[in-house]
Simulated assay, not measured.
Amino acid sequence: MAARGRLARWAAVALLVAVLVALPSVVAALPADDADVPAADLRAAVLDGADVGFSGYAVSAGGLALPVSDRLTAAADLFSDRTLMRVWWRGPDEHRVDVVAAAGETGVHRDPGGTWTWDFEAGTATRGLPASLALPAPPDLLPAALGRRLLSEATDDEVTRAGARRVAGRDALGLRVAPAEPASSVARVDVWVDPASGLPLQVEVYGEDAALPALDTRFLDLDLAVPPADVVAFTPPPDATVLTAPDTEGLIAEAGERAPDVSLPAELAGLPRRSFTGVPGAVGVYGRGVTLLAAVPVPQRLAGGLREALTASPEAVTDALGTRVAAGPLGLMLVERAGGPAYVLTGTVTLDALAEAARQLPGAAS
């Protein structure tokens, strides 16, 4: 009887998922009222709206088939699959995002002290501490969070208005970001904003010459009210298995300490190097906003697995510089040379930009 009840529960969830995913196409067909709001003012409203409270459903759909290891499967799935999320947002440090699927449900509860990830089916609660550098999680793909981040470093010259559309039953005004860097593989980012609250309701990321977005995240249903604190808070049930999440910053720092001792240049593919808290000195991060490139030296003994994953793609390009491949607007390259370290290059840059960066690395082939 318990198994039958569980099956009925998830059958109902599957039906709900189907209805919610289909609903936006019906609502979007309704006409939307545009408003004469300058792009700079609309962008400012988005950046000022970080503390807006809300709750509702959102869906994210990505088409990036990333060649990653089993340890990174969960993060990669966010960019390659369809993810339905139920969200309660009181603020950046106090929110809850449940990923709802036919096979089960996983909730991410954020509080000022860190996060709880609750796997309902497995009965496991995993505690993670706040980190300035962490793998992508479902809250990062909410339209509100992603739209605000992608607009935060855009210049006024890169942002224009893009009309209006209906999103989650609301009139949303469009902002279009067209990256200025020649190295960028992102043609544009469209952010659709609720003008009253400054909340991004939908974000679409397009690669060069792409008719469909490589990533599309949008609200399906939205209530612009601060949800109750008890809905967001989480305490592990008495019978739960409590785990501790890996220290991402510690692992990255340890990997940085083991990385070959090389001095990365101040610029790669025309993109200036920048620094981030939590990023070790052995890792180079270049660019800004939508256009970012990371360069990481790795020992040759660790390069074989990545080379095998990259060359398995029919789109892979292999030459004297190394092997590179694109998954939508995301590029990935392994640079190898005899007698020295290998380098991994990845980011939202073109394959030509990856090749240019490879030529500028210390000791790389010319």
Rank of each mutant, 00 (worst) to 15 (best):
M1R: 15
A2H: 10
R6L: 14
R9G: 10
A12N: 09
A12S: 14
V21I: 09
A22Q: 04
L23R: 11
D34R: 11
D34T: 05
D34S: 12
P38C: 08
A39K: 04
V46Q: 09
V46S: 05
Y57H: 14
A58N: 08
G62I: 06
L64Y: 10
A65R: 12
A65L: 13
A65N: 11
P67E: 02
R71W: 15
A75P: 12
A76K: 11
L84S: 06
L84V: 09
M85H: 12
M85L: 13
R86P: 14
W88Q: 15
W89L: 09
E94P: 10
H95Y: 14
R96M: 06
V99Y: 08
A101Q: 15
G104A: 04
H109S: 13
P112T: 05
G113F: 13
G114Y: 11
W116S: 07
T117Q: 14
D119L: 04
E121Y: 08
A122V: 10
G123C: 05
T124Y: 05
T124F: 02
T126Y: 06
P136G: 02
A137P: 07
A137W: 12
L142Y: 14
E153G: 08
E153S: 02
T155K: 10
E158H: 03
T160M: 13
G163A: 05
R166S: 04
A172Q: 06
A172Y: 07
L173R: 05
P179M: 11
P179G: 03
E181K: 07
S185I: 01
S185Q: 06
R188G: 08
V191C: 07
V191T: 15
V193D: 09
D194W: 07
P195N: 12
S197L: 10
L199H: 09
L201S: 09
Q202W: 12
V205Q: 14
Y206T: 14
L212D: 12
D216C: 03
D221H: 12
P238S: 04
T241V: 13
T244S: 10
A245S: 04
D247Q: 02
E249I: 13
L251H: 08
A253N: 10
G256K: 15
G256N: 05
R258C: 08
S263C: 11
S263F: 10
P265D: 08
P265R: 03
A269F: 04
L271S: 01
R273S: 01
R274Q: 12
T277D: 13
G278A: 05
G287W: 01
G287F: 01
G289F: 01
P297K: 02
G304T: 03
G305I: 01
R307K: 11
E308P: 11
A309V: 03
A309D: 05
D319V: 00
A320C: 07
L321A: 00
P329F: 03
G331C: 02
V335P: 00
G339F: 09
G340Y: 07
Y343Q: 10
T346K: 06
T348C: 01
T350Q: 06
A355E: 01
A355K: 00
E356I: 03
A357H: 00
A357R: 00
A358F: 00
L361P: 03
P362T: 03
P362N: 02
G363M: 03
S366F: 04
